[in-house]
Design a protein around this nucleic acid. Structure first.
Length: 429
RNA sequence: GCCGCCGUAGCUUAGUUGGUAGAGCGCCGGACUGUUAAUCCGGUGGUCCCCCGUUCAAGUCGGGGCGGCGGCGCCA
């Protein structure tokens, strides 16, 4: 390991100190008898200046291309003309690997950046998104730990669907058919009988040919499931968790968020309690805005977008009609037309980031729902067992991590919130 | 699955009523005493997505195909 300092740690007060840095050539400008190299590492940038009288180092500096990997030694010098107010007088330059030309230049389309995503990951802007994503999960872990939740590790290779059958990726499992998991939920439900409050972070796979800014075929799914909680209990968990994630990330990664987001209003307002509106109220709001929608219809993307404009923080919509929601969601005892389900929608048009519900804990009702959906209870035998051997009221939810990142970072598409996005048309790189 | 759009140099693109392909960036060479995506001068670079057709002549017109993008539905 090279004994080096990070770019961000070079301060004007260190004037005169000799330092070693390692990174990549971010910008290079040749002016007269000087070469300015802006060096980039994971922390940030710093300008290095090489003068002709530096001889060998100057010649090498002249020959490096953008994104070459280099190790630099020199002396710190405060200078207001440098991009960060401090620079390095370069004395030695070791080119680890010279790059003749880097394929990404200033005019690059989104499509091209995805084609060379492995190189796009050099970009500080991409790094900012990934740092925010890492910090959101760091915060989630902090909150989950202090609130007594156990992390569990559910299977990814599964035999059946959580909801619907057409959206599963099929694969060969020796001489049988298996699928890639689209949600850990059913397995988390099993885990609560020993651990009560559990969570997992897993990839989830959806073979939907969805061409929208909020869909990936592979995404990171943060799921929680808890025994003894009803819908209203789990909503409190959701808002406390999400607000902690957002506030903590705001505290630790403000600068990184600023690379994409200028207005912090909605993030600052992401504190409990989040507004709660019923499905009925949502329909009223939409109808009052002239949207043609009737009770019982599911809200489409347009409706959801209109609704999010009414709020300045994430908010809940609860009490959806049962028939538009998944079979495992508990029927509302006070209104059998409805399910004890709630989605959390992000403001600014982003929409659904969480889908959650109280789960149906009655064996008979669950069997009936499975039959109503045209599915075979035999395929859910172990899941139904959970309602026969010590069934308890329980609730849970799933959060789409890339959707949360996309909202926090104000991204125009969830694909920018993941390292190597997978969409119906993109499996490479 | 449905609706709409696009495909020209490494990248971003112009290309008129069909007349034989142009620019910017990058890259290479040169100039320049401090640049901030430096600037200036010169050079390099083309399977016009593929196939078939119309025509004296197709990047351009017609048919088919392939690939991608934007949105809807579905969802996190």
């Amino acid at each position: 390991m090279i004994d080096k300092v990070y770019c961000v740690d070079v301060k004007p007060e260190m004037e005169g100190k000799k330092v070693k840095l390692a990174g990549w050539v971010y910008r290079k400008r040749e002016v007269g008898k000087k070469v300015f190299i802006v060096l980039r590492d994971s922390s940030g940038i710093i300008q290095i200046i090489f003068r002709k009288e530096d001889g060998d180092a100057y010649q090498k500096a002249k020959s490096t291309g953008i994104e070459s990997s280099v190790v630099v030694e020199g002396t710190v010098k405060a200078d207001p003309r440098a991009p960060t107010g401090v620079e390095i007088q370069g004395e030695r330059l070791e080119i680890i690997q010279n790059v003749e030309f880097f394929p990404i230049t200033k005019d690059a389309s989104d499509e091209f950046l995805l084609d060379v995503r492995h190189l796009h990951l050099h970009s500080p802007k991409v790094a900012a998104v990934m740092k925010v994503k890492a910090t959101l999960m760091q915060a989630a872990r902090e909150w989950l730990l202090q609130d007594g939740w156990y992390e569990v590790f559910p299977p990814i290779l599964v035999t059946g669907a959580v909801e619907g059958g057409s959206t599963l990726f099929k694969l060969k499992y020796f001489d049988r058919q298996a699928y890639l998991s689209q949600s850990a939920q059913l397995y988390l439900e099993a885990a609560i009988f020993g651990l009560e409050k559990v969570w997992s972070l897993t990839p989830s796979f959806r073979a939907e040919k969805s061409r929208t800014r909020r869909h990936l075929t592979e995404f990171w799914h943060l799921e929680l499931e808890a025994a003894w909680m009803d819908l209203w209990d789990i909503l409190k968990v959701e808002e406390e968790l999400v607000s902690y994630m957002v506030q903590r990330t705001l505290e630790l990664r403000r600068g990184d968020i600023e690379t994409f987001r200028k207005d912090f209003t909605t993030l600052r307002k992401t504190v409990p309690p989040f507004p709660r509106i019923s499905y009925d109220e949502a329909i009223d709001i939409l109808q009052s805005k002239g949207v043609e929608i009737e009770w019982g219809e599911d809200m489409g993307a347009d409706e959801e977008r209109i609704l999010t404009q009414e709020f300045e923080s994430p908010f809940f919509v609860y009490g959806y009609p049962k028939h538009i929601k998944a079979f495992y969601m508990k029927e509302d005892p006070e209104d059998p037309r409805k399910a004890l389900a709630a989605d959390m929608l992000a403001p600014e048009g982003y929409g659904e980031v969480i889908g959650g519900s109280q789960r149906e804990d009655s064996y008979e009702k669950l069997v009936q729902r499975i039959l109503d959906e045209g599915m075979d209870p035999k395929d859910y035998e172990w899941y139904l067992d959970l309602r026969k051997y010590g069934s308890v009221p329980h609730s849970g939810f799933g959060l789409g991590l890339e959707r949360l990142v996309a909202w926090v970072m104000n991204l125009d598409h969830v694909r920018w919130a993941t390292l190597f996005p997978r969409t119906p048309s993109r499996l490479y790189p």
